[in-house]
Nucleic acid binder design. Structure first.
Lengths: 191, 191
DNA sequence: GCTCACATGTAATCCGTTACATGATTCT
DNA sequence: AGAATCATGTAACGGATTACATGTGAGC
């Protein structure tokens, strides 16, 4: 009844089960090539969470060995499917977080010399180029529309970054208008 | 000597001290209006970390009461300044993380009806518009160049998102080419 | 008298990654 | 024979937020 109380990992799990994933291993494999960029999951979260979800009656497990390999297949219960639906259509504030150490380094550019600051910009551009190159090797899968669109988003996002950091790089390396740097030790008037 | 071993919070702290912040409270206040978008810090991290940094010899504390209010002012030691410099100019892989629950909901658009999926797109656009509106109320502060540029980045990033989600919204609400939805319960062939 | 800004801290809790441990089957 | 893939799990650890707790001083 309270979709917002699902743990973050529960959200991917329920969704992936709905899309046809069946084992913890499969959930991990699929998230790694689809939602990982904006919503990852590790084994250390997935397996315990599957058990908690079963206790909560949102998923059902079934022993489904493959030869001598024991394997547990999960499916959504009616309650699980309903809660998933509820979450997917709710309008409460979605979690959002963005963490970019390169950007933090860039932020402190005033305390290093010009060349180092510019180098940080260059590194940002290169980083984003590499992520983009990796993303372009992912092929989308035909059946579903939205995962494809999400990949499109990822690529467009990375392209935009490559452009932005590239533009800034050119802006900063033009010899014109180069402004203030802090003195080696910032004077901190204290009394 | 090993800048990469600084904890995430130590990185902002050292940087902010270098930029002139002096107390834990001040560090928190400043990060809240500058790096928060891409690198936040809470009191529960800042105060203990300041003590650890002092033990490690990277910062120095000084009692600096204001009237009856006790207050501890911190400054970088030579070692701290050096390590900061090292981190800011190092080229090891910067931490990067992006987490967007709205995007995850969007990703699962194939399992809800068309209207709900479109609604999720609309919500994304609206969310980004609100963040953008908030960002536009921030005034940069004149002295330093890079914090200003980081703010510029934030605004450009949010603008790009508003555009992308807005475009998609129009794309999806055009009555043309509306593709497959999953059947109510996805058939899962198992044997 | 009240509220807000300044100021510092801790404890509980959550979430997440990494490393470790184990083992079968399939492919080369 | 060996490597890769399928498969499941736990323990240690790290990092972060939230809530709680406390108190002064300034302005209204």
């Amino acid at each position: 009844v309270a979709a917002q109380r699902l743990t973050p990992t529960a959200k991917v799990i329920l969704g992936m089960l709905r899309l046809g994933a069946r084992t913890g291993y499969e959930i991990k494999t699929i998230t790694d090539v689809s939602t990982r960029f904006f919503w990852g999951a590790s084994y250390g979260q997935i397996y315990p969470e599957l058990k908690r979800l079963e206790t909560a009656g949102l998923v059902r497990s079934e022993h489904d060995p493959r030869g001598g390999v024991k394997r547990t297949a999960y499916t959504l219960t009616a309650a699980g499917a309903e809660l998933l639906q509820e979450w997917l259509t709710s309008d409460d504030l979605p979690e959002f977080a963005f963490r970019d150490e390169g950007l933090l380094r860039f932020f402190f550019g005033d305390v290093v010399d010009e060349e180092a600051a510019l180098e940080n910009v260059r590194r940002q551009r290169l980083e984003y180029e590499q992520r983009l190159a990796h993303f372009r090797t992912i092929q989308p899968g035909e059946e579903m529309r939205y995962p494809r669109l999400a990949l499109e988003y990822g690529i467009a996002f990375l392209e935009w970054n490559v452009r932005w950091w590239g533009d800034l790089e050119r802006r900063l390396s033009r010899p014109g208008a180069r402004p203030s740097r802090l003195p080696e030790t910032k004077a901190r008037a204290r009394r």
